Amino acid sequence: MIKQNETIKELKDRLCALEAICKDLLASAYNSAAQGQIKFDDYRIKYTQAAVEQREAEAKAKQLRVNLNTAKTDFRDIAKSKYWSLVFMTEKQREQELDEIWSTITGDIELPEDTKRPQHVVNEPTEEQLIGRRSELRNSIDRVNGVQLTQTINHCEQSLKDYVKRVETARDKHIAGLKFNHSYTENERQELIASKKADAEISISSHTQEMKRQIDSAKGCLSRLEADKAELKKVNKALGKLLEKQ
């Protein structure tokens, strides 16, 4: 208890000293003790714990509102961009997809408590929209050569195997020749062998990356082609139903 009282007294002494220093500095800055005192009192009001906490709370609330408005804008933009995917989903599938979009957008940001996902209405497409979309899909499908993409994938996959085998065979043959070449010292020979192995590894790695890039690109194009074909069937079906009602 005595130690606690001594600590409290020491803190009070330091606080009084700091207060005196602040007043002197303010009086000097404003060339007036009275003006310095006014400024000091102003600081004491503005920087009470309650005032600081209030400002922090207001700043946080403002940031949360900004986060929410940004998230809503992103959500609407993404949902609109996925219109042709959403419009052919069941109501349950659509809500799940919208929930996933909202979850992805808001996963790394803080929002006000009890924030709910914005509602998004997906209107049924008009005849004009369906005809326009059908034209877009047909053009997209016509631009893609599925056979050529499949051939590219097969070629690259075979090239991966053939290239590795060819480089490794050449590497091993070269190393075998070095082992029987007595014009090098043992250290020189080992350095040349290590260099050849490193070159072969780099060459294989570079070729592998390029072949995988081409494979991934071709598979991506094929995937989009299949998606376009599947959507075209849905568009044609929806257009047919719409025209039957007329």
Rank of each mutant, 00 (worst) to 15 (best):
Q209D: 03
N139A: 14
R224G: 07
K72L: 07
S223I: 07
L86Q: 04
E110P: 00
K241R: 08
C22G: 01
M1F: 10
P118F: 15
E191D: 10
R224Q: 09
Q148S: 07
Y43K: 01
V167Q: 01
E6V: 06
R117G: 04
L137F: 11
G107L: 07
I2V: 08
E231W: 09
N181Y: 12
R138L: 10
A51L: 11
E231H: 05
Q214H: 11
K3S: 12
N123L: 15
K229G: 02
R94G: 02
M1N: 03
K62A: 14
C156R: 05
I78Q: 03
R94N: 04
E231D: 05
R143Y: 08
A34P: 00
R94W: 09
K116E: 14
E100I: 11
Q190C: 08
T115W: 15
S140G: 02
I193F: 06
I101V: 06
A194P: 00
K197S: 07
L64S: 03
N123V: 11
E127C: 08
F88Q: 00
F88H: 02
I105T: 01
E110F: 04
T48A: 11
G146R: 03
L15T: 00
R44C: 10
V122S: 05
Y30H: 10
L160G: 01
I45L: 12
N181K: 12
T126S: 13
L26Y: 13
L130E: 04
F88S: 03
T70L: 10
N181D: 15
V121R: 08
E10T: 02
T152Q: 08
K245R: 13
D142P: 00
A218G: 02
T104V: 09
E56M: 11
T90F: 14
R189K: 14
K82A: 14
A61Q: 12
V66E: 15
I109T: 04
K229S: 10
T185I: 07
C22W: 12
Y83L: 12
Q129M: 12
P125C: 11
E58M: 11
S205P: 00
H155V: 08
I141W: 13
A71L: 06
Q37C: 06
A194Y: 09
P112M: 15
D13C: 11
